[in-house]
Design a protein around this nucleic acid. Structure first.
Length: 402
DNA sequence: TCTGGGGTCCTAGGACCC
DNA sequence: TCTGGGGTCCTAGGACCC
């Protein structure tokens, strides 16, 4: 594996994204503390952050901290549109762009020097173009590894650019608190602090074995590697998502089991609609619940075949919900969510009733597949051979060892 | 701190297979 | 009947990220 010795990875991150879009679209909000989302803070402008407001904070607390804040409802379509425009600029600037979320991405600009200039110049241009063409502040970190670039963009905020030169990496990394590491959250920070490990430098002095026994195998190794500035991850093209989900918080008032079904139908419809729009199907239906005391559980069921059909997902989710009914009625319910995971690539969706095999419907689907992919694309024998689970479900009791 | 909505990855036990 | 060693898949929960 070729590992560049140059700082050619950019991490580009829009500042206070939702809040910045709101300030861009309403001049009255500029220069004022802005909070997006009333119940829970979804984004806070830097003016609001100066008062201690943070995202994911309860709305009541945020208003106490910053009584002058303007609270606006989110405008998701505006955010999606702004994000598209920004990513167009990213893709214009670098051959490999890896989207991390709606508002941040890694860019690999190695080998572009003669065409586009040095990484720091590309980063500066990126910031200028996003500001001029989309009207939003962008911070960029430039470094030799993804992790350093990510931490650097955070340190550059707001509206800044920070390059970590290869010979300044340890000096940059070691004084940072452990929670500055990407992947070290509140729980891990607490465990580490309890052991007197407060900075990345402290972390680097502990052995991998010590960290593994403290944090578990993957987290321990990860923390150890990052503290020693080892991060071989390359910037890769954004992968397809691995699950589709939707959830709905219900508030504190008691909810009847019957009205829960209405919510469930809407959630399943949203999820499967999005899956069909992307041409994806998945095998595992996950029901997410949060009881009245805010404890969470998940219940899941894996189907023998991938689907994006509303009826199939709904029937499965209903089954999971029915099993939880006694608990829901005893403890109350404050959130319902549905997700479909185990996404099987594009693939073919078989939309069949759950209550038993329907070979006529199957033949119809197979005809459509042949029409699209050619007459030899699928045969029943091939189906049996390649999808034993599906075959067992479609033709129970038959010999599937074809 | 009285808690949205969308995701990712890891761990661990049990069933099952060869 | 007790027991190896290697593996996959499913389910549930937890930590983390934006």
């Amino acid at each position: 594996v070729f590992v560049s010795g140059e700082a050619t990875i950019l991490h580009a991150d829009l500042d206070a994204f939702f809040a910045s879009v709101e300030q861009r679209d309403d001049p009255r909000l500029r220069g004022r503390p802005v909070i997006v989302g009333g119940g829970v803070v979804m984004a806070a402008s830097y003016e609001a952050r100066a008062h201690g407001v943070r995202s994911a904070m309860g709305g009541a607390r945020a208003r106490r901290l910053c009584p002058d804040a303007v609270i606006v409802e989110p405008h998701f379509s505006a955010y999606v549109e702004a994000s598209r425009a920004v990513f167009d600029i990213f893709r214009n600037a670098a051959p490999v762009v890896e989207a991390m979320s709606i508002d941040e991405a890694f860019l690999d600009v190695s080998g572009l020097e003669r065409i586009s200039g040095r990484p720091a110049e590309i980063a500066a241009r990126l910031r200028r173009e996003v500001r001029e063409q989309v009207g939003l502040p962008l911070s960029v970190g430039v470094a030799r590894t993804k992790h350093l670039a990510k931490v650097a963009s955070g340190a550059a905020k707001p509206d800044g650019l920070l390059v970590v030169p290869p010979d300044g990496e340890e000096a940059f990394l070691h004084p940072l608190p452990v929670e500055a590491l990407w992947g070290v959250g509140p729980k891990t920070t607490e465990k580490l602090n309890a052991r007197g490990i407060r900075t990345v430098g402290d972390l680097a002095r502990r052995s991998e074995g010590t960290l593994v026994s403290l944090l578990g195998r993957a987290s321990g190794r990860h923390a150890h590697a990052l503290a020693h500035n080892r991060d071989p991850r390359r910037v890769e093209r954004t992968r397809g998502r691995r699950s589709f989900g939707s959830q709905c918080a219900l508030g504190r008032s008691t909810t009847s089991f019957e009205s829960l079904d209405v919510t469930l139908i809407a959630l399943v419809d949203r999820v499967t609609r999005r899956m069909r729009a992307k041409g994806r199907a998945g095998r595992t239906v996950v029901l997410r619940l949060r009881y009245g005391d805010y404890t969470r559980i998940t219940r899941s069921r894996t189907l023998p075949f991938p689907t994006a059909a509303s009826e199939t997902v709904l029937a499965t989710a209903r089954g999971l919900l029915a099993a939880a009914r006694p608990d829901i009625e005893r403890r109350g319910i404050t959130l319902v969510g549905v997700a479909v995971s185990g996404i099987d690539g594009a693939g073919v969706q078989l939309e069949l009733p759950l209550d038993g095999p329907d070979t006529a419907a199957l033949d119809l689907v197979l005809d459509q597949v042949r029409e699209r992919f050619g007459p030899g694309a699928v045969t029943r024998a091939g189906l049996l051979r390649r999808g034993p689970r599906l075959a067992a479900w479609l033709f129970p009791g038959e010999d599937h060892d074809v």
